[in-house]
C-alpha cells in the first residue's frame, strides 16, 4: 500500500516529460516527418523567445507570485534594441537587459513594499513598459539595418553543424537560470519563499529583497526574449511580441510549477514550453482547421494540465 503510494509519488515527478514524449510520439504516428531531427530542431528554435520568457516567469511563479508584465517588457525591448543598435551595437543588448531588470525590480518593489498583489502590480508595470515602447517607437514598426544587425548580433542567428545559434543562446540562459535555482542561495531562498514564506522570514532571510530579485530576473529574461525576437525578425515594434504572455504562463504551469510556488522549476518549464510547442505544431500535422485551433489548444491544455500537475500536496484547489 505505502509502496504503491510512494511509487505514484515518484512517478508524478516525471509526468511532465512523460506527457511530452507521449504527445510527440502521438504526433509522430500521424506523420513520421514530424520526428525528423531537423524538424524537431526547427520546432525548438522557433520557440526560443517564448522559452526565454517562460524561464523568467518560472522564477516569479516559483515564489508564488505571477508576472504579467513579461510581454510588454519584451515588446519594449524589441523597440529599444532596434533604436539603440546604430549607436550602441552590442551595447544595445546590454542596455535592453538592464532596462528589463529595472522594470522587473519596480514590479518587485511595488509588490513587496506597497503590498499590491503581483497580479495587479505587474499588469500596471507592463502598462508602463508598453507606454515606453509606444513612445520610443512613435507607435510604428522599426527595422534594423542589416549590416549593423549582422555586425552586432550576427552570432545569434545562423547555424553551426545544423544547430541554430539561438537555440544555443536559449540553452545557455536555461543553464544560468537552472544554476541560480538549484545551486545558489537566491534559488534556495526562492524555493523557501514558495514553500512557506513565514518560514523564510523567521529564518532571518531578507525575503523582500529576494522577491524583488525574482521579479527583476523575470524582467531581464523577458527583455532577453524580446532582444532575441527582434534580432530574429530584424526589427522592433510595440506589438511585436503580442500573444506571448499567456503561452508563457501556460508553459510554466503545464511543466509542473504550480501557481502556489515552491516546487517545479526551470527544467520543468523547458519541458512545459516544448509541450506547448508540440501541441501547436501538432495542429498542422493533425490537419486541424484554422478555425478550430484555439479550441483544440484549450482542450489539449486542460488534458495536459490534468495529467501533469501534482495535486497530492494540494488540500484546497482554488
Amino acid at each position: 500500500m505505502t509502496d504503491r503510494v510512494a511509487l505514484a509519488e515518484r512517478l508524478r515527478r516525471h509526468f511532465p516529460w512523460i506527457t511530452l514524449t507521449t504527445l510527440t510520439i502521438l504526433v509522430g504516428f500521424t506523420d513520421v516527418n514530424f520526428l525528423r531531427p531537423d524538424n524537431l530542431l526547427n520546432l525548438a528554435a522557433d520557440i526560443v523567445p517564448l522559452l526565454i520568457m517562460a524561464i523568467g516567469m518560472t522564477l516569479v511563479i516559483y515564489i508564488g507570485s505571477i508576472d504579467l508584465s513579461s510581454q510588454s517588457i519584451a515588446n519594449m525591448a524589441t523597440v529599444l534594441a532596434t533604436i539603440a543598435l546604430p549607436s550602441a551595437g552590442v551595447g544595445a543588448g546590454v542596455l535592453v537587459l538592464a532596462v528589463g531588470l529595472a522594470f522587473g525590480a519596480v514590479s518587485g518593489v511595488v509588490t513587496t513594499r506597497l503590498k499590491v498583489p503581483s497580479f495587479i502590480s505587474t499588469l500596471a508595470v507592463g502598462g508602463i513598459a508598453l507606454s515606453v515602447g509606444q513612445f520610443a517607437s512613435g507607435q510604428q514598426a522599426l527595422h534594423m539595418d542589416a549590416g549593423q544587425r549582422l555586425h552586432a548580433f550576427g552570432w545569434m542567428v545562423g547555424r553551426t553543424a545544423g544547430i541554430p545559434h539561438e537555440l544555443v543562446v536559449a540553452l545557455l540562459l536555461v543553464v544560468v537560470a537552472w544554476f541560480i535555482q538549484g545551486r545558489m542561495t537566491a534559488g534556495r531562498t526562492f524555493k523557501a519563499i514558495g514553500a512557506g514564506e513565514p518560514v523564510a522570514v523567521s529564518s532571518g532571510i531578507r525575503v523582500e529583497r529576494y522577491k524583488i530579485l525574482a521579479f527583476a530576473l523575470s524582467g531581464m529574461f523577458a527583455a532577453a526574449a524580446g532582444l532575441v525576437f527582434s534580432v530574429k525578425l530584424s526589427g522592433g515594434s510595440p506589438t511585436l511580441a503580442e500573444g506571448f504572455l499567456l503561452p508563457a504562463i501556460v508553459a510554466v504551469l503545464v511543466g509542473g510549477t504550480p501557481l502556489t510556488g515552491g516546487v517545479g522549476g526551470v527544467i520543468n518549464t523547458v519541458i512545459g514550453t516544448m509541450i506547448v510547442a508540440v501541441i501547436r505544431a501538432s495542429m498542422l500535422y493533425l490537419n486541424i482547421p484554422a478555425m478550430g485551433q484555439q479550441i483544440f489548444f484549450g482542450l489539449v491544455l486542460i488534458v495536459a494540465i490534468a495529467t501533469t500537475i501534482d495535486r497530492s500536496k494540494m488540500r484546497i484547489v482554488k
Partner: peptide
Amino acid sequence: IEGIASGMNVYENMTLSQMG
C-alpha cells in the same frame, strides 16, 4: 507555518538561516 518549510528537505531546512 513558521518552523518547517514542507516541500524542502532536511539539509535545505537546516541551512535556511545560515546560507551565507
